[in-house]
Amino acid sequence: MASEEQHTILDVHALAIGYALKKDKNVIAEGISFSLKQGTLVGLVGANGIGKSTLLRTLSGMQPPLEGSVLLQGEPFKSYSVLGLAAQLSVVLTETPASKNLTVQELISLGRQPYTNWMGRLSEIDIKVVNEAMEVTDTNSLSRRKCFELSDGQLQRVYIARALAQDTPLILLDEPTTHLDLYHRAYVLQLLKRLATEKNKCILFSTHEIDLAIQLSDLMVVMSSDGTFVDQPCNLITAGRFDALFPKDVIRFDPKTGRFGSIK
């Protein structure tokens, strides 16, 4: 849990997200406000199409906000250079890297690009950070393997290791648990939890694993048709925020178990 003296990484105020096409504004979600501190694991949940990816894109600076402000370390995105931003924020995307011919070690080392010279040569520090990233994600034994040889679960660990090698206070992950089996879904989220606590990172991930996210996250962002709510998972359950996530005709949220169940 984030303590009071931890400093704020991401500050979002009255944010409206969506797409602006010339004069038309297509607002997907608005009135989003929260602030995230170091050492916190934040789960972002919501139904398909509610705007999770748009929010993540806005928070990673790939897309400008329609209204409101996003401050990273107290500064707006505009004040960062491309390289400066790369040292603050790393991402794990749903798209797979274009080249699967890279070895695991090569891929993870690419995370050091913001810090290396024009040749991309790894210094002692770079090698140390890459080693740590491989150790904590348990990808050491894979280092020589090519990405096309890996399973989805192993690949996800490699992508997370690359983001770690980038050594940023904030890591954003877009659905890191898709395509994974139950074991690996739990493994990845526990890994993220460990990184938040041990490495003091601020980690925001979107997911459809609502029950796992409730168990592991320090904070949760719930995007529903009623609005966007940010709080600790237990408070969100008491407030009944998960009920509004989906239409109630097929599944229903059980506040006692913290899970969704099928209506018989």
């Binding site: 991402v91 890297p97 891929l107 995370g111």
Partner: peptide
């Protein structure tokens, strides 16, 4: 090699 979005995110 990682794709455009990853490349941008790495500066």
């Amino acid at each position: 090699l990682l794709g455009e979005n990853y490349a941008k995110s790495m500066g």
